[in-house]
Simulated assay, not measured.
Amino acid sequence: MESIQIIREKLKSIVDREDPYVKNLLKDERKGVKKALLQWDKQLEKRMARQAHFEEMKIFETKAYEDGYTGVIGVDEVGRGPLAGPVVVAAVKLPWPLTVDVGLNDSKLLNAKDRVRIAEWVKENALAYAIVERDNRAIDQSNILAMTKEAMQEAILKVADANDFVLIDSVGLDIPYGQAHPDKGDQKSLSIAAASCLAKVYRDQLMMEFDKQYPVYDFCHNMGYGTKNHLEGLKKYGPSPIHRLSFAPVSHFSNRLKKEP
């Protein structure tokens, strides 16, 4: 009779509930075997759900290639909402067909470790990628949406070929390429998800560096968003050189005498 440990090890390689080995284990009355089967079944359910999601996230790219396009570019931005720092855009052209699931998803749904891992994978495996930013001064001189679109257009031009199709998260652009802009595209397209992770990791690293220069705003924890600690820093010291003066509540403090943090 096999030990529970051996059974657990064998189950790791089985991905079919109808597998003869699994059916035989169902006859085993040991509590340890029943527990091992239950855990295996839960893990299998998660793997099946992830595989289904992975296939769903190929739909936009697959259609573009079926329509005759020779490349697909995913575009996403990070940092439209914060009170400080730049807005960052990434454009990514993934190799296709993509058969390896590395965990691409909306960067907001991933932990920091996985975002960094995926961003490194994108840099190593993408056919092309570009990262473009617009700083707080440019945002204040124009507006955040205009600067985001401008950065997106610049990033696309850096990586696009004539017959490429562009997938943009929720934003339509005036560009000479076929395009689609699905809502929550970073959860629906592998290409947009890749851009989301690349932009998020790049911007987070920038904000960590800014935190060293302006530690009183707690940028290392809020990435420029208006958390309690950030707002307390604003009240006490006024805006820093990277704050968006056109954004409330930063604008409420922009006329105050600034102290050097």
Results as ranks from 00 to 15, higher is better:
E2I: 13
R8H: 13
L11E: 12
K12P: 03
I14K: 07
D16K: 09
D16V: 06
K23V: 04
D28Q: 02
V33S: 00
K34M: 15
K35G: 03
Q39V: 13
W40K: 05
D41S: 12
D41K: 13
R47K: 10
R47I: 14
R50W: 00
H53V: 10
F54Q: 01
E56W: 04
M57V: 02
I59Q: 07
F60E: 08
T62F: 09
T70S: 09
T70Q: 12
G71P: 09
D76H: 04
E77L: 15
V78F: 03
R80A: 06
P82S: 06
A84S: 13
A84Y: 11
G85E: 04
V87A: 00
V87K: 01
V87S: 00
P97F: 01
T99L: 10
S107G: 09
N111E: 05
V116N: 10
A119F: 03
E120D: 15
W121D: 05
A130E: 14
R134E: 11
A146M: 08
M147Q: 14
A151T: 04
E154W: 02
D161N: 15
D161S: 09
F165W: 08
Q179D: 08
H181D: 08
A193C: 01
A195I: 05
A199Q: 00
K200V: 02
Y202E: 15
R203H: 09
D211H: 15
K212G: 05
Q213S: 14
C220F: 14
M223T: 09
G226R: 00
K228V: 15
K228L: 09
L234E: 06
L234F: 10
Y237S: 00
G238Y: 00
P239L: 12
R244H: 05
R244G: 03
A248I: 15
P249F: 03
P249N: 05
N255P: 10
R256F: 11
